[in-house]
Simulated scan of single mutants.
Amino acid sequence: MLKMTADEIGAFLQQQETGVLSTCADAEAYGTPESFGYRNGKLYFELAMPAESKRRTFLTQTDTACFTVQDAKTARDFASVIVQGSLDQLSEDGQEAGMALAQNDQFPSSHVFPGQDTSTVRAFVLEPGSVSGRKGPDFEIDATAASLPVRGDNE
């Protein structure tokens, strides 16, 4: 297993569409698959937050969120990135989130189910505090696609 460079991590995140967002409340972890957008070194999400939902409880109580993205084809052809940091709700317009999601979000409405009230959807940004990326020896990525300011074990 090899460490990814900051440029490889940025390019990888730009090319992926989904991952698992992990939050924590009262010493209980909660992970949900989410579509995301990557722009200017930050991760963006549009998340439904119905009143009294488990998701709302966990999002409002989490100090540090963790987002994991992986692409695994074989035992030698794989990559994964883990981003930890603060997850904050954006202002009402969510313009930056919308632009990021439009760039690399395959399923922009994956958080909404048929018949679900979309008025509870809010835009969030994950500000990276630490980032790590690993890849297998056969994984290839065009590292010129994007760059992520990396803090953590890739420094």
Rank of each mutant, 00 (worst) to 15 (best):
E127C: 08
T120L: 06
D88K: 07
Q116K: 03
Q95L: 13
D77C: 10
S80R: 13
T120C: 15
S80L: 07
R76N: 10
A97L: 07
V81P: 04
V121W: 10
F107T: 05
T118I: 08
N104R: 06
L87K: 04
A75H: 03
V125H: 01
F124Q: 02
Q84P: 05
Q89C: 15
S109F: 08
A102E: 11
F78N: 08
V83N: 10
R122F: 06
S80D: 13
F67T: 08
V112L: 10
C66L: 08
F113A: 14
Q106A: 15
A100S: 05
V125D: 00
D88H: 03
F78H: 06
G94A: 10
P108N: 15
D71M: 09
Q70G: 07
D117V: 00
Q106E: 10
S91P: 11
L90W: 00
V69H: 02
M99C: 08
V69I: 13
F67V: 08
E96V: 14
V112W: 04
S109H: 15
A75D: 09
R76D: 13
E96H: 03
R122T: 09
K73F: 08
Q95N: 07
C66G: 08
E96G: 04
T118P: 15
S119P: 03
G94S: 11
Q103I: 05
S86Q: 14
L126T: 00
S91T: 02
V121P: 01
S86A: 13
A97M: 07
R76Y: 09
A97T: 01
D117R: 00
H111Q: 11
V83H: 15
D105C: 14
S110Q: 07
F107Y: 13
V125K: 00
L90G: 00
L126A: 02
Q70A: 10
Q95R: 07
A123M: 11
F67Q: 15
S110M: 10
V112K: 07
G85M: 02
D77E: 14
I82Q: 05
G94W: 00
L87E: 01
Q84E: 15
D71C: 14
F113K: 14
R76A: 15
G85S: 03
V125G: 00
F78L: 11
D88L: 13
Q89F: 06
G115R: 02
P108E: 15
S80V: 06
M99T: 03
G85W: 04
A75M: 02
L90Y: 00
D71S: 12
D88F: 04
Q95P: 03
A97R: 00
P108S: 15
A75C: 11
F78G: 12
A72N: 09
Q103W: 07
P128D: 02
I82G: 03
V69S: 11
F78A: 09
Q89W: 01
A97G: 09
H111D: 06
A102S: 06
F107M: 14
A102R: 11
G94V: 01
D105V: 08
C66F: 10
D117H: 01
D77R: 06
Q95F: 10
N104G: 14
D77L: 06
